[in-house]
Amino acid sequence: MIAPEASEPKPILDVRDLSVSFEQYARGLQKKTLRPITSLSVTIRPGEVLAVVGSSGSGKSLLAHAILGILPSNARVTGTLRHANENLTPERQVALRGSDIALVPQSVGFLNPLMRVGAQVRSAAHNGNAAEAQRAIFARYRLAPEVAGMYPFQLSGGMTRRVLVSTAMISGASLIIADEPTPGMHSAVVEETLGHLRELAGEGRAVMLITHDIEAALTIADRIAVLYAGTTVEIASVADFTGDGQSLRHPYSKALWRALPQNGFAVTPGAQPVLDELPPGCLYEPRCPMSTPDCTGARPEVRALRGGVVRCFHAA
């Protein structure tokens, strides 16, 4: 594990060696174990935007659910979750959810369709004058006062985003988890939503931005955690994502960076392993150009490298 530098504030959230598994029925009566998250470790500090980037099936949404304590009942969790230096027990998760840890969800489906949005935002407030706070936040997000009296179906996509961010904002949470907050939206709305998240970090909150879109992540994040097959393969500063990716540490992060249309649109063959068929060694080994026999034998541990963190035997 990496000791945080002395000047940096203490992490608000420290996830260490998190693993999540499910049991499923294979054919007939046999059970098989799926492990969507394998020894995942990330930390996030106040005032920081940490982007968690990964493809669908990399476990990034489950990470959010694990932090919030909303995994399905057949999930088994190991590893430690610490919030503000205290263990995040199920009781604390219930207590903190919505008050100190807030979620900016992916879809409008999280709003109650039968309740005026103003009331919904107000109900997320935990102290002070809710009505006043709601008016102030709506003004800040350029939502007209009459929007408070509207129902979710009357809002445009961009307005819905702003209402969802308002809910997280009014809660006064110190940790905000945004799970794919910009799915398939027009670039102007994407920029606006991301800008709001950046502002929240500017106020000293910690923002975890979960996304598959590395370009979106790069525009506002301080650090980027790259997820692959349920584990953190690299945690790098945004500045490392430059040029042809020579500053990046893990072959997957490099491939991800070089796959962007503006960075060469380079093809990497193969696919992320399916959950019940995880390779015994390094999870990226089957697709890795740097693979050696060592990589098939054991899973690499995370290690510090050039100011970041990488999970690879060969990264230098």
Partner: peptide, 11 residues
């Protein structure tokens, strides 16, 4: 609901 509960229950 919570994963830790689930583990306890299954035990």
């Amino acid at each position: 609901m919570s994963s830790v509960d689930a583990v306890a229950v299954s035990h």
